[in-house]
């Protein structure tokens, strides 16, 4: 039970805000699409392995985008691959998150000028939540990227946003 172990003397009810509960659940088990592109993927795999242990944050690679919450774009995005990445992203169920890992997927990296085959940033095809710099980033950097994403999810709201002019009205 970890944190909650022997914290309660009697009763079995915990009272929490729905939003906090949802956000906590979402950020604590971010299943990633089992998917790698280039040398960054090697670092991503190292992050998943026992030494850095991505699993302690609830990150497990899934073999299908339909079971995944986050996609880590780990490497050079070629035009050929960009089309497939977009399809993978569209196949993921909401809520879904994107971590762009490394210079290539952030902005084209070393291919920014003469890379006739490289998309200059994966954010040209799918929306990115966290950019992790590095070429390739060390596992620690990817872990920090994940923590940033968790922070972002922790502050999310499931309440419908109030837009000016529509206050108090229902659609």
């Amino acid at each position: 039970m970890g944190l909650l172990d022997q914290e309660f003397t009697e009763g079995n009810i915990v009272i929490a805000k729905t939003e906090d509960l949802f956000n906590w659940a979402r950020l604590s088990s971010l299943w990633q699409v089992g998917f790698g592109l280039a040398c960054c993927a090697i670092e991503m795999m190292a992050t998943s392995a026992s030494h850095y242990d991505f699993d302690r944050f609830g990150v497990i690679p899934r073999p299908s985008p339909r079971q995944s919450d986050v996609i880590i774009i780990s490497g050079t995005v070629t035009f050929k691959m960009a089309i497939r990445i977009k399809r993978l992203y569209e196949q993921m169920p909401d809520p879904k998150y994107v971590i762009s890992m490394g210079s290539c997927s952030n902005c084209g990296g070393p291919y920014w000028e003469h890379g006739y085959h490289v998309l200059k940033g994966v954010d040209r095809v799918i929306p990115v939540d966290v950019y992790v710099p590095g070429c390739p980033p060390r596992p620690e950097a990817l872990l920090e990227g994940l923590l940033k994403l968790q922070e972002k999810i922790r502050n999310e709201s499931i309440v419908k946003p109030i837009r000016s002019g529509f206050v108090g009205k229902t659609a």
Binding site: F79, I83, C107, E113, Y116, H117, L119, K120, R124, V125
Partner: peptide
């Protein structure tokens, strides 16, 4: 890509297109 119709990239006079399948090509 099989549908690449903008020429042969390693020729010395090759020019990249502005867009490929709706994706902007230059930096």
């Amino acid at each position: 890509p099989y549908d690449w119709e903008f020429g042969y990239p390693l020729r010395k006079d090759y020019k990249n297109p502005e867009f490929y399948q709706g994706m902007k090509v230059p930096y």
